[in-house]
Write a protein that binds this DNA or RNA. Structure first.
Length: 282
DNA sequence: TACTAACCTGTACG
DNA sequence: ACGTACAGGTTAG
């Protein structure tokens, strides 16, 4: 019996480029999230965590209908919401989210996944959950005392130094990611941008997927392409890459056009355009 | 302030 | 085969 009133689609959500460490076994989906594991079953819908703490990983607490009503004022977004019913933004562990997107720079999804898996295997704790073996994502303090050599063995390349320095800043308490949840977008952004390896785009990803900033709108190469393709009348983008000042300008324009749930709009648009271009999600 | 080149690495393509 | 280009960007100059 297909669920006609599907509120959360595990398949669409997990296959939308916001999560890299996941596995699917039929009806069951497992997502690595910090020192926890999220297991979702699609039908009947159920979410169980390794920690037994409910954390609304799929943002079950969002008023999805209200958000859809708001973002579908835009016709292109409306089309995407019809195509991907149940696509959600996730609420991820902030540290894992930081490292994941630092590692994502100038790379592609299969490669990002490979690096993160190597990080887990080298530094993560082994656990057993639902009769399966997993290795958790490493804790900040563990990565903080890794060597550059070890990180390079995980194929992080020049990102190794960024991962090490950022891990140290977080492990030492110099930057408290949980504190950023309480701040406004601009304030949290300012703090994140001080961390090495975190620039405009990565900061937006971290804020959208782990720091409760639904007004974040990561501007990657795909989103720039999308804005040029569908929104050239509303938002002017002349080049392939953009400068720092331009990024802030465009974000302001984007917010005015898409509204306070711009992050959700972004996820639907991103998902649609990637699929249109037959890009891999794993 | 705005713009560029360099950057690790795996994979897809010619 | 084997070389080249490119991928959810960031940084230094």
């Amino acid at each position: 019996m297909p669920d006609l009133d599907i509120k959360i689609s595990l398949h669409e959500t997990i296959n939308s480029g916001q999560i890299f460490l996941w596995e699917n076994y039929g009806n069951e989906w497992f997502v690595l999230d910090g020192n926890d594991i999220i297991m979702g079953k699609q039908t009947p819908f159920e979410v169980i965590t390794f920690s037994k703490i409910a954390k609304n990983f799929f943002r079950e607490d969002d008023n999805y209908e209200k958000i859809l009503k708001d973002i579908t004022k835009d016709k292109i977004v409306k089309k995407a919401t019809n195509r991907y019913p149940g696509l959600r933004i996730t609420r991820q562990d902030p540290f894992q989210c930081c490292i994941s997107f630092i590692v994502s720079s100038n790379s592609n999804i299969p490669n990002i996944r490979m690096r993160l898996q190597k990080l887990c295997r080298k530094f993560g704790k082994k656990v057993r959950f639902q009769k399966r073996d997993f290795v958790l994502f490493p804790e900040p303090k563990r990565l903080a005392r890794a060597t550059l050599q070890e990180l390079k063995e995980c194929k992080l390349g020049y990102r190794s130094k960024y991962v090490l320095d950022t891990s140290q800043a977080i492990a030492s308490g110099e930057v408290d990611l949980d504190e950023l949840k309480k701040m406004k977008y601009e304030q949290a952004r300012e703090v994140l941008l001080k961390l090495p390896g975190i620039g405009d785009k990565v900061a937006d990803c971290v804020m959208l997927f782990s720091l409760e900033k639904l007004d974040s709108f990561p501007l990657d190469t795909w989103m720039l392409k999308i804005l040029q393709k569908y929104y050239s009348n509303n938002i002017c983008i002349d080049k392939k890459s953009i400068s720092k000042k331009r990024y802030e300008d465009i974000h302001q324009n984007v917010l005015e056009h898409f509204g306070k749930y711009a992050g959700y709009s972004q996820q639907f648009l991103y998902k649609m355009e990637r699929d249109l271009n037959e890009k891999r999600w794993l």
